[in-house]
Amino acid sequence: MDPEKALEFVKHGSTLLLLDVPQYTLVGIDTQVFSAGPLFMGIKMIPPGVHFIYYSSSNREGNEFSPIIGFFVETSPSEVVVRKWNPQEERLVKVSEEDEQRYSEGVKSFEFDRQLGPYTLSEYGDWKRLSSYITKGIIERIEPIGGEITVVCEPKLVDSIPKMATEKALAEQLKNSKFRRSVEKCELKGCHYTPIPHVIKLKGISGQELTSLNLDKTLLLESILMKEYEGDEDRLLGELNFLLLDSW
């Protein structure tokens, strides 16, 4: 990319400014992941729109990582999203409006430009396809209180009996590591997904008809679409997009 075009992307793209992130922390946006070095302060040239930001803190050696925490944002052209590392909680937190304004001005005057990694624009198409139905309304309806998503505070997943080897390893990490927090003490809550019954129970129909309804869930899907989404298929697809990305 020639310098003039790159400068246009820097000016009109969004920026994620991350303050005091410890070295070796993994920071991701959409399909891209960065390993924080001593000078890392965030990501620039982000196309405006919906994005998923996620991160995983590391030990001092950089060989053990905490469960991922993530959050969705919808950015506008030239917007600067500012987060600061809280060492006690080992997570990114918002700064005051005054500080956010001050740091935003610093970004726009290129004070942090050398410490910002560029968003890989060639991968943006993949992200758009994965998130094409996610809107601000979808995010606000599903995201937990506070907006942060983490498996630690998904009790149904943490406390259930895993069947896959990777799930067993994750559950063991959550139980035995310093990153395990009880659901009662957890400030974050799970995502507000639409409940789907596993078994259909209806009165007044034959056993054969009931079996058929439980094998073919078309009527259940149509019922949920009308009841929960007012017939809007895009909203249903948006929740499925959200669920897919939340499961990474």
Results as ranks from 00 to 15, higher is better:
75 T>R: 03
176 N>W: 13
130 L>N: 10
137 G>T: 09
45 M>A: 14
83 R>A: 08
177 S>R: 06
25 T>M: 09
214 N>W: 02
189 K>P: 00
12 H>P: 01
17 L>P: 00
128 K>Q: 08
226 M>A: 05
159 D>L: 14
205 I>Y: 05
109 S>L: 04
62 G>H: 02
171 A>D: 10
49 G>L: 07
133 Y>G: 01
98 E>F: 14
95 V>E: 06
176 N>I: 08
225 L>R: 01
180 R>T: 07
35 S>P: 00
222 E>S: 04
214 N>H: 02
161 I>V: 15
150 T>H: 10
68 I>Y: 07
210 L>F: 04
104 S>Q: 13
12 H>C: 09
47 P>E: 14
79 E>M: 06
37 G>N: 11
23 Q>K: 11
146 G>F: 08
209 E>H: 14
10 V>D: 12
121 L>C: 07
146 G>R: 09
22 P>R: 00
91 R>N: 15
180 R>G: 12
47 P>C: 13
101 Q>V: 10
207 G>T: 04
81 V>A: 08
68 I>D: 08
174 L>V: 08
161 I>M: 11
222 E>T: 00
211 T>V: 05
229 Y>R: 01
173 Q>K: 15
37 G>I: 01
227 K>N: 08
133 Y>P: 00
236 L>G: 05
32 Q>G: 03
4 E>Y: 13
84 K>L: 04
155 P>A: 05
203 K>L: 10
18 L>C: 06
60 R>G: 11
32 Q>W: 08
51 H>M: 09
82 V>E: 05
208 Q>N: 08
175 K>M: 15
41 M>S: 08
151 V>Y: 11
29 I>F: 03
151 V>H: 14
162 P>V: 10
122 S>Q: 13
125 G>I: 02
53 I>N: 03
120 T>E: 12
205 I>D: 10
49 G>W: 02
114 R>S: 08
10 V>Y: 13
68 I>W: 05
219 L>F: 11
7 L>Q: 13
189 K>W: 10
66 S>C: 08
233 E>I: 10
47 P>N: 14
101 Q>S: 15
187 E>Q: 14
228 E>D: 03
4 E>K: 14
169 A>W: 07
122 S>I: 10
136 K>G: 14
203 K>N: 11
9 F>H: 12
237 L>G: 02
187 E>P: 02
61 E>F: 15
53 I>P: 03
122 S>C: 06
241 N>I: 04
64 E>R: 03
86 N>Q: 11
219 L>E: 09
11 K>F: 05
31 T>P: 03
217 K>T: 00
153 C>A: 06
78 S>V: 01
149 I>V: 09
104 S>Y: 15
171 A>C: 14
37 G>Q: 08
58 S>R: 04
1 M>F: 12
118 P>K: 13
234 D>I: 01
153 C>K: 05
188 L>Y: 08
102 R>W: 13
172 E>K: 12
134 I>M: 06
245 L>K: 01
98 E>T: 13
237 L>C: 09
33 V>P: 01
243 L>E: 12
